[in-house]
Design a protein around this nucleic acid. Structure first.
Length: 636
RNA sequence: GCCGACGUAGCACAGUGGUAGUGCAGCUGAUUCGUAAUCAGCAGGUCAGGGGUUCGAAUCCCCUCGUCGGCUCCA
């Protein structure tokens, strides 16, 4: 299973809700417009785009030599890419915002003018495009952009005050109509997103129709930061990173390990019921395995550098790689024993640990790491069995999403491009069409919303990625499900048919729980650290009123543990209020408070994380309720 | 990987050239308490690491490591 690197898009934040705006290549998208067509921006986008012009205008007022590239609205605001010797830092924002204020207060009308291509080129050469008038240097990025405008498309200018920009528009009526704005950060970006091109400074800002909406947005960002898994991971003692261990290599503390083991328990139960068999494979393999699979050499740069071993007194060199995926190992397990059509489907499952050398700048908490434990399985089946197997896999995804209450996700169905058969995609047009139709049918008949993206399939077959969004709005692939009709034949995998012939099986790679790292990172944010009882690292904390109650508290802990319930007693000499506070901050689902009253009556006083004081109950009643809640994996 | 910012006690932070600080957590003691913080004392640091400038560096400069924000959205 190869989890593809996901694009990191952003979501748009609106007060009180989170609205998704997706950016997919080749997909109709309300936010992107083909260059030749008149733009159809939303009101908010228009406002933000106008803000970008005002930003450029302000930058020019301070640094007239600035050269501008693109300045579009984004999901959360706007930016303008600028080439400028002066390094703009957040310290410059105040000054820039003041300049921008001057422009908005002047209420300069935005005027549109259609010009000829020659006139546009002329203006570009004289530096007037994205400028405050003629300059000694040409507007070279704008000239490049003009070259890329289709010959039949009109070329338009937008002006406000002295500022003129090559722009398709639209814009607000005048510069006073841009609502409330703020510059947010500065980053670098390559011109046209290509690392061969010069690096520009990208100044980001955001704008809303009203000051209140702007404030709401920033408040919401603050709230989102509180559920950032990196922050909660530290506070709740779930995982850590260490410089000596290495970047992107998480260390799981005991509380985080509980999460891992509960997820594995769930996966193992679910997969057992669905007819999977568990396998175990080593973390390394010889170079030859990845030559056979086809991962070498093209995938080599995403793998850790190989280990070279000189065995036989140094005569022979053996090269080993840390595995970046489990599929080749699983294929070898399939190949280990002669297989009959009667044996299929064969479903091999393993929580396999994989290592990928992700670029240092791409690492991000648990969401993108270099060592990951994957909820992997490979299903080998006949073509006839494929639809049913795929349907079952899909049902498993939905079952998991139901358990975790994951409702905000998107299924992304990536298909092939017939024009690229034999290059980007395995050359078997019939099989592509057939499998894609089967996948599509399953999705449609299951009533699942999905987007279809041509040209994004894996080399060996179509795939479905489940996209979700982190607390701070980054999009990533949580889980993936891929059809493979190419690699099994590279491995010479075969089964004997009822006619005693050899046939290559299809393979479904699937990882509905993705990797532990990313899935738990996601769950931490999804639950804001308040895990449902079945997942909670510590399920119950027993709080004795005073140390006279120590032994009764310990009795209760023993009883809970005998029932398999994770619990501890807080025997510190704090007052009960302080103990409650600590337990609440650790987001422990239940507290049991015991004093003399409870000891004599055999009752316990229950306090839940969610509802506070729930009063006294006979302890067996509570144990029973808790056990049921855990067994059922209730949402809360 | 590239660009930028940042790195001070376990955590959150203050300290911009002149003796390294605060709060929480920790430890010790006292307190024995009924639903979100009891009190007191103590300890804790090669200021990420290395090099340089300076009479003197957490502070200025260079290198390395790490973390964070970006690197798709094209007039």
């Amino acid at each position: 299973m190869v989890l593809q690197r996901s694009s990191m898009s952003r979501v748009a934040f609106l007060p009180g809700q989170i609205v998704l705006i997706l950016h997919f290549k080749n997909i109709k998208n309300p936010n992107t417009h083909p260059i030749s067509q008149p733009s159809s921006m939303t009101e908010l986008e228009t406002l933000r785009h106008s803000c970008a012009h005002i930003l450029a205008n302000a930058i020019l007022a301070l640094w007239p030599e600035a050269q501008f590239a693109a300045g579009p609205p984004t999901s959360n605001g706007f930016y303008y890419d600028v080439d400028l010797p002066h390094r703009i830092t957040p310290d410059d924002f105040e000054l820039l915002e003041k300049e921008m204020e001057k422009i908005t207060q002047a209420a300069q009308p935005f005027e549109c003018e259609v010009i000829s291509r020659d006139r546009a080129l002329e203006m570009g050469l004289s530096g007037e495009l994205a400028g405050l008038g003629a300059r000694s240097m040409p507007s070279h990025f704008k000239l490049d952009i003009i070259k890329r405008i289709p010959p039949d498309a009109p070329i338009t200018l937008y002006r406000n005050g002295a500022f003129t920009d090559l722009c398709a528009g639209p814009h607000v009526a005048d510069t006073s109509k841009v609502g409330a704005f703020r510059l947010t950060h500065v980053a670098s970006a390559y011109y046209q997103g290509d690392e061969k091109n010069p690096q520009l400074q990208r100044i980001y800002g955001t704008a809303f129709a009203t000051k209140q909406a702007l404030e709401d947005y920033f408040n919401m960002l603050e709230e989102a930061k509180k559920r950032d898994h990196r922050k909660l991971g530290k506070e709740l003692e779930l995982f850590t990173f260490d410089e000596d261990v290495g970047p992107g290599l998480p260390l799981w503390l005991p509380r985080g390990t509980v999460l891992i083991e509960e997820l594995e328990k769930l996966a193992k139960e679910t997969e057992f019921q669905a007819g999977y068999e568990r396998v175990k494979t080593p973390h390394i393999a010889r170079e030859q395995l990845y030559k056979t699979s086809g991962h070498l050499p093209y995938y080599a740069e995403s793998m850790f550098p190989p280990m070279e071993l000189h065995e036989d007194g140094g005569k022979e060199k053996n090269i080993y790689y840390l595995k970046a995926m489990n599929c080749p190992h699983h294929h070898k397990l399939f190949a280990a024993i002669p297989r009959s059509y009667r044996d299929l489907p064969i479903r091999f499952a393993e929580y396999g640990t994989c290592y990928r050398y992700e670029q240092s700048g791409e690492l991000m908490g648990l969401m993108r790491v270099r060592a990951m434990q994957m909820n992997d399985a490979h299903i080998y089946c006949t073509e006839e069995q494929f639809a049913e197997e795929f349907r079952a896999v899909n049902a498993m995804y939905l079952k998991y999403f139901h358990i975790f209450g994951i409702t905000r996700y998107q299924m992304r169905f990536s298909t092939h491009d017939p024009g690229k058969l034999g290059q980007k995609f395995v050359d078997d047009a019939q099989l592509w069409i057939k499998t894609e139709n089967m996948v599509r049918d399953v999705l449609v008949s299951s009533g699942i919303d999905f987007v279809e993206i041509p040209n994004e399939a894996a080399f060996y077959g179509p795939k479905i990625d489940v996209q979700v969004w982190s607390a701070i709005g980054r999009e990533f692939t949580l889980a993936t499900n891929q059809v493979d009709f190419a690699v099994p034949s590279r491995f010479g995998l075969a089964y004997t048919t009822s006619e005693n012939k050899k046939e290559t099986p299809l393979c479904i790679h699937r990882a509905p729980l993705g990797t532990h790292e990313r899935f738990i990172g996601f769950l931490i944010e999804h639950f804001a650290g308040a895990f449902p009882t079945w997942l909670a690292p510590e399920q119950v904390r027993v709080l004795p009123i005073s140390d006279k109650m120590t032994s009764y508290a310990q009795t209760i802990v023993r009883e809970l543990r005998a029932l398999g319930i994770r619990s501890c007693a807080d025997l510190s000499s704090e007052k009960v209020g302080a103990k409650i506070r600590v337990a609440q901050l650790l987001k422990i689902p239940y507290m049991i408070i015991v004093g003399a009253r409870e000891e004599s009556s055999g009752e316990i006083s229950v306090r839940s994380r969610q509802n506070g004081d729930e009063g006294s109950v006979p302890k067996e009643n509570f144990y029973h309720r808790l056990k049921k809640e855990i067994e059922q994996r209730s949402a809360c």
